[in-house]
Design a protein around this nucleic acid. Structure first.
Lengths: 330, 330
DNA sequence: ATGAAAGCGCTAACAA
DNA sequence: TTGTTAGCGCTTTCAT
């Protein structure tokens, strides 16, 4: 059975194409019984409108592009999962494009979004993206672009991201409230802006509260490195009462080390992390963490997108408030 | 700057639309210098062809649909990640649709794929899908459908899945080779076909080799349940030398229990799992597992799809061979 | 080597 | 209430 079109329906019903089109849309100026007839036949022959024709004609699209470094990441997973739901409920679909953290592929993906005349684009830029003009050019052509998670520092664009400073402040406040005195804090690569923001806010909070806690801040580029770091610092007799992990990647390495050393949480050592919320549930006791989940962020990004489509030219930076999720590790 | 079209380019260059179209495609019967002129202007004004117009005209599409229960799952994550790469390298994009394990939404998603006249569809059905006729109808309309992972039992369709029986056989053989004598084996919900296949193959292998091992097979519907199961069986003095986990979900619960009980791997207890390969790396020592990763499956599914598009009406069921990945838990 | 024209499936202004 | 028509941006056959 080849494709059914309006034309074919019209012929079958001895009606004009436009009447059929209107009937299918329940236009009130089509006789109610004609509407019935049309819809009945359409259902019978499994008619589905051709989206390409509609989009061409109306110059509108019901698809959003999502450009991310890679999908294999708890954050993007929860973000996309949530975004897809929002999109579907509003009659939109999502086109996923991975850049592999390569700015060249990212640009190529952007080109495809443009060719597809998408309704809008959500993008988390690569760590090496330094020219955001191609994105801004799309905005000029009325394709809204919402940056999320990893966003450019450029001011005049729509951004939705985790409040890194607030998360670190909350972490520090939690440790202070729990009267931790000897803290081993492990942060990510020092050149990353996320590391810098979290580290600075973390330290400032201890100063601000006039805390007398000893805080040893270290950097770790990977799970393996944070494993080594903990093995070095907690392997022999030590004075630490808690380890703070800036990210899931670090948490995994820390937990491996804790297991290797046979440390019992929270008796032998406390653990506090900033996390997407999946990894902390993999251990016993469940790790206490500051949540920076993609779910909430996706909802914010989506409603910002709808506003842009509705015509808002107002540009803003939204931050999602971090929350403390208590486990049994502290 | 509004949308640039062929028409606009033609006007600007004092050429006809068809010549511009041909020039952009490097048609040899356009004067080489005309081609240059056209391409230069096109690049200057940032011309991008309108995909909707092309697809409408050619009745072709460069988009695949992917319908899955939910993206938040290590298996689908690796599958989609890999599939997207393959697609991109071949000039295709992926539209992701989640069914939330709800057959109604699944059907709705299928309808959208049809409306979008997609080039093909990859689908992992919900656990409650019992009517696959809507899928088969698409195939009749020349939209290839490749089922993956969770597939219908119906014979005449393209399926790509993990070889569940082979994975369980390999697991059993590994345990036999390691001379494990007292095995606690935890499987998923007994009504799931994946559980049945794995359980049967597992047990048959012990019989086949005439093993004298004591195998205690239990079922667990969740991470929490497998945690309880292990607490019950390994909490007090016991004779088990290894725990086998049918899935990542179970593995997580088992590892939580092992940590709670302070068991040291592999000294106090051995662990063997069937896994997507992410979770086993979260523990120390790394868990030994049988890999059923989505990466390989995606490549198989994609090449099958290309074959279908190229006109192969041949239908087949492909299985991905499981592999043993040695960690330090056995 | 270039152009004119038809048509993909649909919508919407205008006519009747 | 229904039909006619033009046109969205592009490809492609046929003419020149």
């Amino acid at each position: 059975m080849p494709d059914v079109t309006l034309k074919k329906l019209a012929e079958l019903l001895n009606l004009s194409i436009s009447t059929v089109s209107r009937a299918l849309k329940d236009h009130t100026d089509v006789a109610i019984e004609t509407r019935q007839r049309v819809k009945q036949l359409a259902a019978m022959v499994d008619y589905e409108p051709n989206t390409y024709a509609i989009n061409l004609r109306t110059n509108l699209s019901r698809e959003f592009g999502v450009i991310i470094p890679g999908i294999a990441n708890d954050f993007y997973q929860s973000f996309i999962s949530s975004l897809e739901e929002e999109a579907r409920h509003n009659g939109y679909s999502l086109i996923i494009l991975q850049s592999g953290d390569d700015p060249v592929i990212e640009l190529e993906n952007l080109r495809r979004c443009k060719q597809n005349r998408l309704a809008g684009i959500f993008v988390s830029i690569t760590s090496k993206t330094n020219d955001i003009n191609p994105f801004l050019r799309l905005v000029e052509q009325h394709i809204p672009v919402i940056f999320f998670d990893i966003v450019p520092s450029f001011e005049a664009c729509n951004k939705v991201c985790v409040d890194d400073a607030a998360a670190a402040v909350l972490a520090a406040e939690t440790l202070i409230a729990q009267k931790k005195k000897n803290i081993l804090a492990i942060f990510g690569k020092s050149q990353l802006s996320i590391t810098q923001k979290r580290l600075q806010a973390f330290n400032e909070t201890f100063s601000k509260y006039g805390s007398d806690a000893q805080v040893c801040c270290l950097h770790s580029g990977s799970t393996a490195e944070s494993f080594e770091t903990v093995m070095d610092h907690l392997g022999s007799p030590h004075q630490y009462d808690v380890v703070f992990c800036m990210s899931d990647e670090i948490l995994i390495g820390v937990m491996k080390a804790a297991q290797t050393l046979g440390l019992v949480l929270p008796k032998d050592i406390g653990i506090l992390a900033i996390s997407e919320g999946i990894i902390p549930t993999y251990y016993f006791p469940r790790i206490t963490y500051i949540e920076t989940s993609g779910f909430k962020l996706a909802k914010m990004a989506f409603s910002r997108m709808l506003a842009c489509i509705a015509g808002s030219s107002y540009v803003q930076e939204l931050k999602s408030e971090p929350v403390l999720i208590a486990g049994g590790s502290l």
